[in-house]
Design a protein around this nucleic acid. Structure first.
Lengths: 204, 204
DNA sequence: ACGCTATGTTGGCGATGTCAACATCAAGGT
DNA sequence: ACCTTGATGTTGACATCGCCAACATAGCGT
């Protein structure tokens, strides 16, 4: 019955295929006709489930952001400290490390997560899903302030600063001039970056 | 005579057109056939001067990096301090500010500057040209260390940290979730970011 | 049983990057 | 002066892609 004229859940299958393509070759590899080929359906079938290629991209981006969020959450979960301030600081570091590790480990997905057209009309909950990692970072920073580890006056801009640092680090290593650095060196550089940001935020 | 069969300096004209397209619409707008149309020459003419579309992109990227470098240099030139340490710190800030301002002021060019395929066979001097902004940042950081403003042990990873911060900040505002922030707020966030990084690097 | 609507399919259009074959010019050796 | 040669530009074609229109089929409610 799976071979019937109607696929049953073509949409999910197409998203799967799109995610697969995205993993392999990044944004440019997400090709509607190739998705259809993979699923065994004829081109144009996707237009019954997606309005547009951008619509597909947004779907993949949502998936990627979800993956990124769980990666960040498991980073937080790995923190064991009892002291509240120490714990808050560790959480920030682990969130940052998880972010970068996800980006470097899933380059295609990561690139797509930030390829969403701003002009594209996004539904309310889709926007919410795309912002989940950002919201999580904000929680961590709130705790950093509430625990007293960071001066409260730094809180408003801390989110952008932290995000910029790890985001830029990831991109420099993905499509930038330091993309050929060995992983041990890269890890050391990441440690230094996270430490620098932490010092900058913590300093009284 | 300019209307002769042979254009004279088609290559330069094509690069001009490509840069123009890049300014308008970013990487995707750099279309070989459109370049040819703008110059008034038939498609495929570009293949006598460029091996590939990637070759054209590399050319535009080189131009963009050149512009970025001069922007950074004029940022440095605006620093007036006499004290060596203060001066070094100001230079770092102005370089960072110039980087971000260039990115936000020339989104298309900036995006292309970091779109160069790593696999593409780049000539030695082309690689050098593409790394010029990076080299300039390194000079500034060397002076920050030599002046004693920054502990020497921080020097090795400082380049990546600084670059990551401003690069990430730029991208978050260009294609990220904070792209709709008003410019005054954006400028304040940039100040905070630069201050945070500076604190993180300077701290003993 | 009938029809309505969601879902797939076929065919086509315009655009793009790239290749192959051809045309034209500019220069230089004889 | 002429003719060859290599560089430069053109024409035409092919494959691929996103998207639109027209058509076909299946499943569901009445």
């Amino acid at each position: 019955m799976t071979k019937s004229y109607h696929h049953g859940n073509l949409r999910a299958a197409l998203v799967d295929a799109a995610v697969g393509l995205a993993r392999e070759g990044g944004p440019d590899a997400v090709v509607l006709r190739e998705m259809a080929r993979l699923v065994g359906v004829s081109h144009n079938a996707a237009y019954r489930h997606f309005s547009d290629r951008d619509d597909v991209m947004a779907e993949v981006a949502e998936f990627a952001m979800g993956q990124l969020e769980t990666a960040m959450r498991s980073g937080i979960a790995s923190v064991r400290s009892r002291d509240r301030q120490v714990r808050a600081r560790r959480c920030l570091r682990e969130v940052g490390r998880a972010y970068v590790h996800f980006a470097l480990g899933n380059p295609g997905l990561f690139m797509i997560a930030f390829t969403v057209k701003s002009e594209a009309a996004l539904s309310e909950d889709r926007v919410l899903a795309l912002m989940a990692p950002y919201a999580l970072l904000n929680e961590v920073l709130d705790e950093l302030r509430d625990s007293g580890a960071m001066p409260a006056r730094r809180r408003p801009s801390a989110d952008v600063s932290c995000w910029a640092a790890v985001h830029g680090f990831s991109l420099l290593h993905l499509s930038g001039p330091v993309s050929d650095a060995p992983s041990t060196e890269r890890e050391a550089a990441l440690d230094h970056l996270l430490a620098t940001i932490e010092r900058g935020l913590i300093a009284p």
